[in-house]
Design a protein around this nucleic acid. Sequence first.
DNA 1: GTCTATATCAAGATAGAC
DNA 2: GTCTATCTTGATATAGAC
Lengths: 190, 190
Amino acid sequence: MLFPCTRGRKSSREKILDAAAELVGEIGAGRLTLEAVAEKAGLSKGGLLYNFPTKDALLQAMIQRMIDQVASEKEALREKAQPGPNLEARVVTKTLLNICCGGKMQDMATGMMAATAENPRLLDPVRQVIHTTLEQLKATSDDLDAALLAWLATEGLSSLEMHNLSPFSDEDRDRIVKAIERLVTKGIAE
Amino acid sequence: MLFPCTRGRKSSREKILDAAAELVGEIGAGRLTLEAVAEKAGLSKGGLLYNFPTKDALLQAMIQRMIDQVASEKEALREKAQPGPNLEARVVTKTLLNICCGGKMQDMATGMMAATAENPRLLDPVRQVIHTTLEQLKATSDDLDAALLAWLATEGLSSLEMHNLSPFSDEDRDRIVKAIERLVTKGIAE
DNA sequence: GTCTATATCAAGATAGAC
DNA sequence: GTCTATCTTGATATAGAC
């Protein structure tokens, strides 16, 4: 996804995407209205619609930004990754745990939910990413079972956190993250 | 959730809930309209609103029915479960794999998505169930790490399938289910 | 590039007939 | 208990001024 070179301070585009992501978390995906987004971004409805001609365009951009963020986090982690077994799986799980679940970047969640609600086909690019991830895991894992389970457990945790359904305390979560690491390096017991 | 004793053929209520669940899968949660539900259920909008005075009431009933289905499937499986380690975790994962992911009962998914989109607070009862599940796992698991990971992996798979994001073939899925079973009985390797 | 104003439309909900 | 209007609201999108 290309867009004009906007060095310096945040472009309207970015401000709008930020506002939209926050809003979904606050009021729910189904209640995301262009007017509310415009207000939160400090813009009028007309100004918003100059940047994103339709609501679908806005949602699509939210999804794409999320995908790009995940991809770049993944690249960064791949640089620093220790060699060893199930490398790809370790990178994938750590990426998800860093971006989606843990931090402030719950845009991921919210963007996806908004898109799903509005138009399931907007998730097609995500489908593509997930498909590719599976291919890579299959091609490179030393212990595929452990790799898949670690990946799925991460997706599970991330999914619960997305929907604000996570029952885990900080200590619980810490324990889980460590267990996932252990699983992906040591495998399932005989 | 109590409702009138309606032996014999399906009550309007049930037909409406079925229709709503199917519709969400077909057209997306955000496009679930009362009119569409009414039509699919073979009713008019007025007739629908007699049974469920508001859209929230309809969504709430969808959620509750889903919770009840999961609970009763869980009870059934608990009866038949083999004694052994991590029993609760085995019951929980098998329940999820049977109900949510595998079969025809994708109501679960769809109901949840519709509710999330419309009003995140409608998921409160689900939050309660998940919280209780965690408590039970903590109280009864022989190997809590393995129990939690198996549960989360199941949630992850179920979440992908919910959103139609699963990249797994039937063989893949079979392999994963077996791996989850192995994890929950054998644990993580040392 | 952003604003105001407005057209258009569809959705949820109500009232009252049958 | 279900139907057919009808009301009301609010959301997307357009047109054209600044």
